[in-house]
Amino acid sequence: MSADFWAGYISGAIGIIIGNPLDVIKVRLQAKESLTAGQTAAASFARQFESTSSLITGTAAPILGYGALNALLFVSYNRSEAALNKGLALPPNLWTTWLAGAIGGLATWAVSTPTELIKCRAQLATSPTSSWAITRRILQNEGVRGLYFGGAVTALRDSIGYGFYFWSYELGTQWMATPKEDKTSLSQEAAKVLLCGGLAGVMTWASIFPLDVIKTRVQAQTLDPASRPLLDDPTKPQRRLGAMEIAREAYREAGMRVFFRGLTICSVRAFFVNAVQWATYEWIMYELGEESVDLQSLLRSHCR
């Protein structure tokens, strides 16, 4: 398989392992988990991880799913950008980068939707539940179609988000590009990759966080009483709401601020996860003899 496939797969899996603890908090905050009266932020944080197993809640599906998703994302992005720049004779610019990223994000829909669905339900389950058990329950009760519940809002989120992901990373590398006549150390170039990757992650989540809140609440709904997540109110009739109904209900709950609940935690997670992901991706591409950004030529000169 292509170099960008393996670079994307490995970097995606590493990102999930690093970021899962904070992702659990983010998802639970989005699904109405908030501080109760007299509860401190520190107490709330400790409650999220009452046991060691909480640190890895819902990781099985993302490690497999996001590895494949990241691989598909980078392959689709690279091929789309090449087609836009060459096939359609469009000059390379930040807007073609955004469009290629949006196409790449949309291409991940088939993997992203079931992965997100299973992850959310595992992280919101009232008792520890494995990703495999949740998957089997969905298939038994709803069939394959059940794995794609919330697919429309997930596809919209991914398309917009990954457009800004590649756009902001490319913009960062252009701003931090060093003139060829200026020599820089390997550590400086590595720091640039980490910083550009981290900022790209923050920019991405900031651009689509309200959509992610809606997606989480949509996918957290389940008709299976045995796996009813934290979001569900047992007094309500078991009818799953659409994205627009969920958005209106959330707005009535707490106004506009509800769509940004958990953004701080998410931004911290996004910076570190995407810094490591981009650094891993660039390093693997270099080791496999591929160049993905101009920083690679600088890295090569230091690694000889």
Rank of each mutant, 00 (worst) to 15 (best):
A200T: 03
A82L: 14
A200V: 06
L171D: 04
N20K: 12
D232S: 12
T204G: 05
A133T: 13
W132E: 08
N78L: 14
W132L: 14
W109Y: 13
I246T: 05
A71E: 01
A31L: 11
E291L: 10
E50D: 13
T235D: 14
G289V: 04
V293E: 09
P91M: 09
A155Y: 08
G146F: 07
G143K: 10
Y165P: 05
A122Q: 05
S131N: 02
Q123L: 14
I17P: 02
A110N: 04
Q174M: 14
D23V: 15
T235I: 09
W95I: 13
F49H: 04
G201Y: 02
F74D: 13
P92I: 05
A200N: 01
V193H: 04
E189A: 09
Q219K: 14
K215H: 05
L90V: 12
M244G: 09
N274M: 12
M285E: 08
M176E: 07
T135W: 11
E33V: 07
V153K: 03
G15P: 04
G201P: 02
P234V: 04
T59E: 04
L84R: 03
S34N: 10
E50M: 12
R47V: 07
R261K: 10
D294K: 15
S227A: 13
L147D: 00
Q140Y: 06
G242V: 08
Y169G: 04
N85L: 08
M176C: 08
L22D: 01
P114D: 00
Q123P: 02
F209H: 06
V202M: 09
V293K: 14
S292V: 11
A125S: 00
M256W: 13
L22V: 12
Q238N: 14
R28P: 00
A3P: 08
I246L: 06
A155I: 08
L199G: 02
S80P: 03
L195N: 08
G19L: 05
P114S: 01
L186F: 15
A46D: 02
G262K: 00
S227C: 11
W167G: 07
L156H: 07
A42D: 03
G161I: 13
S131K: 09
D4T: 15
A275F: 09
F5Q: 01
K180I: 11
L139P: 01
D4M: 13
P114I: 07
A270W: 07
L156F: 11
I214C: 06
I138D: 01
G163R: 04
V213E: 01
L90K: 13
I118R: 02
Q219Y: 04
S127E: 14
I208S: 03
I103M: 06
W175F: 12
T59K: 05
L90P: 06
S76D: 02
T264W: 13
L230P: 01
L90S: 09
I118M: 09
S185H: 03
R252Q: 15
W6G: 00
